[in-house]
Design a protein around this nucleic acid. Structure first.
Length: 251
DNA sequence: AATGAATACAACCGCCTACTA
DNA sequence: TTAGTAGGCGGTTGTATTCAT
């Protein structure tokens, strides 16, 4: 099947939008809405293709769009969501009201990527692989310890309560969490010398609980008890974030 | 002041998916 | 079931602006 080009007709305008074109588009949509983007330019009297109109409205003209510079909080939100969602810009945009996927994509490429340059996850380290094996072996051991109710109460009653409720999606947990910490501080601190001391599973709820010193943090993130390399990346970063709240010793 | 490099961001391109006839 | 279409998405490009020399 051959897809027809967006702008079949010759003479349709491309490039930056003129203020007059913006005004025509705004007026038309305010009056008639935008049910059919393909038909819209003809009905509105614009020499643009429907796709171009849609893009202009969605990314620039819509009244729902928040203009102006990104706040520090918004930038932190993007960084954390990108850790979870990757380059799914529209999914990230859904979590940031008033910001478009295009805008978020742009700010990622121009600002935020650089901010994270200092953080390099320990990809191929022997220590890292060994630790993952240890953890997986531990998790699958028939006599894996169970989380006691007293341990769980520690998890859910202190400052970490917002990130451990099993009914919440992990993205929501992060969204709450990210409001409380400053990402620029901890990314530079990460190195592979910092790991959980022990790990235990709750077989009933698929919880993974990391124990470090006197503190316990629980992550409702695995549907299976196998910890994969990718999970570990996430777990690693997540744990570092949790560290900010629990005041673990300096690295 | 001139100019080349770097940056910012709006807009486009092409692919994918959902929907419909 | 299949072909065609519209809308949505992520990657990329083009151009205006800012910065550095």
């Amino acid at each position: 099947m051959v897809r027809a080009p967006c702008c079949e007709k010759m003479g349709l305008k491309k490039g930056p939008w003129a203020p007059e074109e913006d005004q025509i588009l705004i007026s038309y949509i305010q009056k008639n809405g935008h049910g059919n983007w393909r038909a819209l330019p003809k009905q509105a009297g614009l020499l643009r293709c429907g796709k171009s109109c849609r893009l202009r409205w969605m990314n620039y003209l819509s009244p729902d769009i928040k203009r102006g510079n990104f706040t520090k909080e918004e930038e932190d939100n993007i960084i954390h969501l990108h850790e979870i969602l990757g380059n799914r810009w529209s999914a990230i945009a859904e979590k940031l009201s008033g910001r478009t996927d295009n805008e978020i994509k742009n700010i990622w490429h121009t600002h935020l990527k650089k901010r994270l340059k200092s953080y390099q996850p320990p990809q191929n380290s022997k220590r890292r692989s060994k630790k993952i094996n240890e953890i997986n072996n531990f998790v699958h051991a028939p006599n894996s310890p169970q989380i006691s109710s007293s341990e769980m109460s520690v998890v859910t009653s202190d400052s970490l309560s917002s990130i451990v409720f099993p009914s919440m999606q992990i993205e929501d947990q992060i969204l709450i969490k990210q409001k409380e910490i400053d990402s620029s501080e901890y990314f530079s601190k990460i190195d592979e010398s910092f790991w959980a001391e022990e790990l235990a599973t709750d077989n009933n709820s698929n919880f993974v609980t990391i124990m470090a010193g006197e503190e316990f943090q629980s992550l409702d993130m695995f549907n299976s008890t196998t910890i994969l390399e990718d999970d570990m990346d996430f777990l690693f970063k997540f744990f570092i974030k949790a560290e900010d709240l629990t005041e673990l010793p300096e690295l």
